[in-house]
Amino acid sequence: MIPFDFEYYRPESIASAIDTFQQLDTAEKQPMYYGGGTEIISMGRMNNLKTGAVIDLKDIADCKVMEFHQDQLVIGSSVTLTQIHEANLFPLLAQAGARIADHTIQNKITMGGNLCGTIIYKEAVLPLLLSDSLVSIAGPGGKRTIPINSIFKERMQLDKGEFVVQIKIEKQYLSCPYVHVKQTKQDKINYPLVTICAMSVGGGIRAAFSGVCDFPFRSTAMESELNNLALTLEERIDKAIALTPGLIPTNLEGSAEYRKFIMRGLLNSIINRLEGSNVSNA
């Protein structure tokens, strides 16, 4: 049971959601936008989160779409990981989402919720970073569409009252050869020790990581080393790992050294697969 009360709103338009947020904020109710709600409910139950009102975005039509608009795949922020997996329009995203939590919870977790929650892993963002996706955001200041690589810096850098409406992915990335690997400490269903999404684009390899640091990331500096064909494969990998953009943690899941060991093995396998002659989708 959640040990405190809050109000529940389910607006049917973007404008109504923003207006509701502003009114509740003025009333000092510390409103929160609500997607699948798995994190808000579980953290609320433990008193690790408090709010006076939630604004459920699941009735907003723009947040529910999953369709092609010209050369872009548009995915609304209220689309669930299961819907993405079942539609399989972006196989790398479908596969990454299918390894977050378990299958039943994937029926509840939304694209927007995974991107904007407080859990540090956010594995659904990795394919978006690799595919230079765009994010449509709405808030009190209006609507804006911005590259995810500009607004996702360790987490989504949203202003107060803003929420993600849609993700837009260029068609050209949907069929690029890719590899998704998730290594956990023990069970299949767990937070990642190391998750890597990699994609071959124009002859080069792009890679994004979760579990390696306290935030998911894509590093162009690491990619430069991974694609430096003047070096041996081992040198490419070691130089890339040395450029990891944050502290590699030691915790109950594994030590920093063990994570590096896992990264080396996975990157070796990924590069061999993506640079192999007969690579299609993994």
Binding site: R10, G37, T38, I41, I105, K108
Partner: peptide, 22 residues
């Protein structure tokens, strides 16, 4: 654990992670 699973619009949902208002 999944002990609370019910179907919502035909899909399994863990009812401990769904608000009744939803």
């Amino acid at each position: 654990c999944g002990a609370c699973t019910v179907l919502v619009d035909g899909w399994p949902i863990k009812s401990c992670l769904m608000l009744v208002a939803e």
